[in-house]
Design a protein around this nucleic acid. Structure first.
Lengths: 204, 204
DNA sequence: GCCATTCTTGACTGATAAGTCAACTGGTTT
DNA sequence: AAACCAGTTGACTTATCAGTCAAGAATGGC
């Protein structure tokens, strides 16, 4: 017998946790369920992670590390600032469409779902999500600031504008989950450009 | 012995459920915990409600019925449309400040927290929250449409604008919960008026 | 080949979850 | 006073939860 899989148990646990929590919720994703999806025994779980909540933090960290290169690519300085937003949104829609087809319902954004579920109950998870949303804000602010400098939009306070855009986007993602409808996800691009005043021939 | 309380057991259960779920989450609010907060035995719980999830739906319905008169007052046609938004926001801030002081952390919006937690898992709760958020949209759309007609803002598509504002507001409330910080709640008014283009001397 | 380390196994514990139930209470009806 | 009934009580069942553990397997260094 050759080892069927090299040592990826830890990684499979992280992925199983991410998907299960994303699809249902932190409370509804049991350790046994996560182990089952990962094809791993419960003892192995506690060999790699001291608790369910520390697994959640590790899963968030791992998920972000896997996604960061793509964010850096979408928000590359080589791309025109408003195109960064467009392509980033395009990718969000694609992912939500795929996940909705796979699961049979709209899943929305795991950071917001998990964060608002355990925000008042689990400080380490709360802090990690706060940190990750802070990263999102940075990308948005950078693109908005550059769009302002190039006079594509009028946004003298890019940080404030980025907070507006982030809350709007996350709000739409969450509404999509609550309505179980992809429409709010699809209209995010129009909404963001409305907020940024694109097309409003801004003569100030 | 006089009956110390008239028959308000059902009502106390509804209030206990609302506050517990709001402060923690649906999954973390146990039936026993709800009974304990309501000062009621578990048997009584199941005398009034067939299940925890039906209690949640009843609590949402009851909570909305209690709040509706206030919404009607804030969004009264006697009030200038943008003032409706201002005063509604003022009340939101007050409530969040009070709840944060009472609980020691920012609680945010229960509809969004609960909805995104159980949205993929519990259809009746999902539908009820969807309905209630639809009501919120109506109030916003009405005020925005009227503000547009009176040329206080430029919003030729009030329904779309209302969706943007609602997602933004709920996004900020959720960010406040995740950051455990009232700042996002306090800046909602500025953000809404930025989105609506108030003060941008709109000459179109 | 040998040993130490890393990983795996699955049964186990104690706690807690949602939901059930038969007996009981006290006020109202007839 | 007898029957009635909405409401109450708290112990009970069954299931599942997070987390433990001792023993065994695979691995890699020497």
């Amino acid at each position: 017998m050759s080892t069927p899989r090299p040592n990826d148990t830890r990684h499979r646990l992280l992925e199983a946790a991410t998907s299960l929590i994303w699809e249902s919720s932190y409370g509804a994703a049991s350790v046994e369920g996560i182990c089952q999806r990962a094809g791993v025994n419960k003892g192995s779980f506690y060999h790699f992670f001291p608790s369910k909540s520390e697994l959640a933090v590790a899963a968030l960290t791992s998920e972000w590390e896997a996604r960061k290169p793509q964010w850096d690519e979408f928000f590359s300085p080589l791309v025109a600032p408003l195109d960064r937003l467009r392509r980033w949104h395009e990718r969000c829609v694609e992912e939500q469409v795929r996940l909705a087809a796979e699961n049979g319902f709209v899943v929305g954004c795991p950071l917001f779902s998990l964060g608002s579920e355990v925000g008042t109950q689990n400080e380490p998870i709360r802090q990690k999500i706060d940190e990750l949303l802070g990263f999102h804000l940075c990308y948005l602010e950078s693109a908005i600031a550059e769009a302002h400098v190039r006079q594509h939009i009028h946004a003298p306070n890019p940080a404030a504008k980025a907070r507006i855009v982030l809350s709007y986007v996350e709000g739409q993602m969450t509404r999509a989950r609550i309505q179980n409808d992809l429409a709010p996800v699809r209209e995010i691009e129009d909404g963001v450009f409305d907020i940024l005043g694109v097309g409003a021939s801004c003569v100030h």
